[in-house]
Design a protein around this nucleic acid. Structure first.
Length: 291
DNA sequence: ACGAGAACCTGTTTGC
DNA sequence: TGCAAACAGGTTCTCG
């Protein structure tokens, strides 16, 4: 499910419930996530106060008052739900961790596919931890710019699509936002990464930042699993230009759109959004507009 | 060392 | 209708 905008949406939704609050009770129902929960995980959360809630790439980082950081990754299908204790539905078989705060609020981590993880890392060591140490720059930060991206892509003989999904290049993008950013930048997903340099890299960086900001403002994209912790849907999926739009008209060059003037023929110009598979994942793009 | 592909796991959608 | 295959927003391991 979640790429950077969805994780940021979850962080914002959890802030009011968790930041500054003490964990009165924690329960772990299932330890075998992608990375197994540490020993005594729930007991180690219990009684701790959460000093702050941050995000690095697709990781949520809850700073605890004992020098440890509670690290969360939502994987593909992970979801956080908040509610007043007693007001939430019965525990589901895919609810793996439940936290109750002194404010009588409950936070549930649900992840059917169990590609997500939770763990505890010493706060001083978070940046150097194996899970996070190789992450590239935060895309919305000042040190992610055209020159930095161009340098990261130099010499890489893989399609730009694959290079952007690689979290070492830039951290936080996933399949949706890579497709959307490449469309906005007018760059073909098949273009060799090493051939995205100079002005092209500048344009791509600007597109990445713009798409992510718009998506965060929309509360992320709700396709299947993503919800804001309050339960509300994100709505950026309504703004997709190419993702999951195979055969639809290109919003940039209008290829594939119905012929103008023809009120009944329904004839369409050739073209439209195309779906291809790269590295086993769907890529959506406009072959005319993206070169 | 790098890149491509498989693997991890469950649920839902699609196609015959 | 029913069953099987394909597919899903991520990451990591293995192989060539």
């Amino acid at each position: 499910m979640p790429e950077l905008p969805e994780v940021e949406t979850v962080r914002l939704g959890l802030l009011g419930v968790l930041a500054g609050k003490r964990i009165a009770r924690a329960e772990a129902y299932r330890p075998d996530l992608r990375v197994a929960l540490p020993e005594n995980f729930a007991a180690r959360l219990q009684g701790r106060r959460i000093l702050g809630l941050e995000r690095r790439a697709k990781y949520l980082l809850a700073r605890l008052d004992d020098g440890w950081t509670w690290v969360v990754h939502l994987g593909m299908s992970g979801r956080m739900t908040t509610g007043r204790i007693g007001a939430l539905p019965p525990i589901d078989i895919h609810d793996h961790v439940v936290v109750k705060t002194e404010g009588n609020m409950e936070v549930r981590f649900r992840d059917p596919r169990r590609f997500g993880l939770m763990t505890l890392i010493r706060t001083d060591d978070v940046a150097l931890h194996p899970l996070l140490v190789d992450l590239g720059p935060e895309p919305l930060s000042g040190d992610f710019d055209g020159a930095r991206l161009a340098a990261a892509l130099k010499g890489r003989r893989t399609p730009i699509k694959a290079a952007l999904l690689d979290q070492r290049t830039v951290a936080g993008l996933g399949n949706i936002y890579v497709c959307e950013a490449l469309f906005q930048a007018g760059i073909s997903p098949k273009r060799l990464a090493a051939r995205v340099q100079g002005e092209r890299a500048e344009v791509l960086v600007a597109a990445i930042k713009a798409v992510l900001k718009k998506a965060i403002a929309a509360g992320g994209s709700s396709l299947r699993d993503h919800r804001q912790p309050s339960g509300e849907l994100g709505y950026f999926q309504h703004s997709f230009t190419v993702y999951d739009r195979e055969g639809k008209p290109c919003p940039g060059c209008q290829c594939g759109a119905a012929q103008s003037g023809g009120t009944e023929s329904g004839a369409a110009k050739p073209g439209g959004i195309r779906r291809i598979v790269q590295g086993g994942r769907s890529t959506f793009y406009c072959p005319r507009r993206q070169r």
